[in-house]
Design a binder for these strands. Structure first.
Length: 573
RNA sequence: GGGCCUGUAGCUCAAUUGGUUAGAGCAGCGUGCUCAUAACGCGUUGGUUGCAGGUUCAAGUCCUGCCGGGCCUACCA
């Protein structure tokens, strides 16, 4: 039995994420986790909220709440939505946890012991009115290059030129609008990533099976210009993991916190401890997933993330792990995904453009979204959500091909034989052909799922569903019944068993349909069809079932038109 | 500015890494069927692979240039 450690990039705390965020990490990670569990493998699937940093502080202030309270509330909201989308996390943690605080401080101490931390005095813009240092992009002013009057401190949105905040003409704080800014010296800890450049290069180069997207981003950072740069891992903020060297104070670092990108990936580890603690498990239980000296050497660790997260997962987090000199588990495979666009443009959180996770669930059940998003996952390129495409895919694939199959089979059986698996007849050539086709397709499906080829998996699954309809067309039990009711019984026995088989195979994509179909077929036998013939005998003669309600309904043209309008612009609520 | 990715049928995507006649699904068209959610099956029309050159026995795939789309560019996360 294989062991899979699976993490999804942890969503930032400030607000509800859109469908692009969902399909970029959590959803494919969940698909993979569910599939590996179904295959009988041991899985630990973790996610959490990423809670530190300036945006969290500002969002809390805007909401008029203390930041810890705000984060706790938003964590609950995100946890509820994740549940709504049927994310099968073993634990949904928080980067602000006690466990992560201690572990982050521990890593910092280890890295310092290994000589991989240095102190650097930076110059940073301080806003006297706001009483805080400002990250570059929280300063705006007139672009010295093109004269655009709201250029950000890091880059001008108008002429796309990279800027330094001190270059801006008439700079002001975007938080308060104050122009009362000054440049101050501030001391920070830097992670000496450059020391490990060669080691990282070798490691990344050995990952020939990773998505090109992932390795090319990593190589760019490693080799661009002067190569991998050291990176500041502390910030002048109050909300975050206090800078400490293990349990000891860090002289000169009082009042500072670790940079969110330093502590966020460490939460992948801390989350395992949160999981163990929450379930009254001893430390050995989580350490066997993360410590290669404590049983994790046979673990395969897979990370899922959008492309914007790739540098941190391929470079700075591995530096943290490797640089610690301790036997922590290093990632084996990084599944980096592109972006999902919305109807000819980008999803926009600020402008409320596109469908957000809570809104999606309010209009349709999770399975509809899961199916569409996964079968159109932005694996090789950015992909695009359009309502027309969504409606067509959902109606055709879920309602017509799968849902209607269930409907026609169960209703036919009920009217001719009653609501139990009928006796009589034998299987012959058409059944053998079907089994042969299904066996080929199921093996292909498994291969694609194992390789995390999401779209190909979806296409194969759909073909498996369609094979049921083809079988019915070939055998035509409604005709057979008129001349040879026994043979029709054998045919419908096959079809009823297909429903259970489809349910089991489809569960990673559409878990709610899995549950409702298993319930309709009155079985809990979720055995994976390693042997297709055996799997098609799982519901034996006389086994009772019920005719399910509509498994998937169709999206009407009116609904589509209404939603198209509703989600096109500003988000109201 | 630099780097990377990308452009294939009306739409969404494939193409075993340079190897026969570029394939699927949807939409369209035709047809069969009547168990079923106006569903299903079968057949079929759509391609100068963005453009122009080049390398090669062979190019969607490699090279050069141009045009278009996207991402990243290290203090947002």
């Amino acid at each position: 039995m294989a062991r899979h450690l699976i993490t999804s990039a942890i969503p930032y705390i400030n607000g509800i994420k859109h469908l692009g965020n969902l399909v970029g990490s959590q959803l494919p990670a969940d698909l993979f986790a569910r599939f590996q569990r179904a295959r009988g493998n041991e899985v630990l699937f973790l996610c959490a909220t990423d809670e530190h940093g300036t945006p969290a502080e500002l969002a809390a202030a805007k909401a008029g709440k203390p930041v810890d309270e705000y984060c706790a509330e938003m964590w609950a909201v995100q946890a509820e939505i994740a549940k709504g989308f049927r994310m099968s996390f073993d634990h949904f943690g928080r980067s602000s946890s006690e466990q992560n605080r201690k572990l982050t401080q521990h890593f910092a101490a280890r890295l310092a012991d290994q000589g991989l931390i240095k102190e650097v005095t930076d110059q940073q813009v301080y806003s006297i009115t706001d009483g805080r240092f400002l990250p570059d992009r929280y300063i705006e002013g007139t672009c010295p290059n093109c004269g655009f009057d709201s250029a950000r401190g890091d880059q001008c949105d108008n002429c796309t030129k990279q800027l330094d905040p001190v270059d801006l003409i008439n700079p002001y704080s975007t938080i308060s609008g104050s122009t009362d800014l000054e440049v101050r010296d501030t001391k920070h800890l830097y992670l000496r990533q450059s020391e490990m450049k060669d080691q990282l290069n070798e490691w990344i180069s050995s990952k020939t099976d990773w998505p090109i997207l992932t390795t090319s981003i990593a190589k760019k950072w490693l080799n661009d210009g002067d190569g991998l740069q050291d990176r500041g891992i502390t910030r002048d903020l109050s909300w975050g993991v206090p800078v400490k060297r293990g349990d000891e104070d860090w002289p000169g670092m009082e009042g500072k916190v670790f940079y969110v990108w330093f502590d966020a990936p460490i939460e992948y580890i801390a989350c395992a401890k949160e999981w163990a603690d929450a379930n009254d498990k001893p430390d050995a239980e989580w350490e066997r997933w993360w410590r290669t000296d404590k049983g994790a050497d046979d673990v395969r660790y897979t990370q899922f993330m959008g492309k914007d997260n790739v540098p941190f997962h391929t470079l700075s987090f591995p530096v943290t792990i490797l640089g610690s000199g301790e036997p922590w588990k290093l990632v084996d495979y990084i599944k980096g995904l592109n972006y999902l666009n919305y109807d000819g443009g980008q999803f926009s959180t600020s402008r409320g453009r596109g469908v957000f996770m809570d809104q999606a669930l309010a209009i349709l059940p999770a399975d509809y979204w899961r199916w569409w998003l996964l079968s159109h996952a932005p694996e090789s390129n950015d992909s695009e959500f359009t309502w027309e495409n969504f409606q067509a895919s959902v109606n055709k694939d879920l309602a017509d091909v799968l849902g209607n199959f269930v409907s026609r089979v169960t209703k036919f059986c009920r009217s001719k034989f009653g609501e139990s698996v009928p006796d009589g007849g034998t299987w012959g050539a058409p059944e053998e052909a079907l089994i042969a086709e299904l066996t080929t397709r199921i093996r292909a499906y498994e291969m694609h799922m194992d390789a995390m080829e999401v779209r190909k998996s979806a296409a194969e699954l759909r073909a498996i569903w369609a094979a049921g309809n083809e079988y019915l067309q070939v055998t035509a039990p409604w005709s057979t019944f008129k001349t040879d009711p026994d043979q029709a019984a054998a045919q419908i026995r096959m079809a009823l068993n297909l429903i259970r088989l489809y349910s089991v195979l489809s569960a990673p994509f559409i878990p709610d349909a899995y549950a409702s179909l298993m319930s309709a077929m009155q079985t809990s036998d979720d055995t994976w069809p390693d042997d297709v013939t055996a799997a098609l005998g799982a519901l034996s003669i006389g086994h009772n079932f019920t005719v399910p309600e509509v498994t998937f309904r169709k999206i009407t043209d009116d609904e589509r038109a209404e939603w198209e309008t509703r989600f096109s612009g500003t988000r109201d609520e």
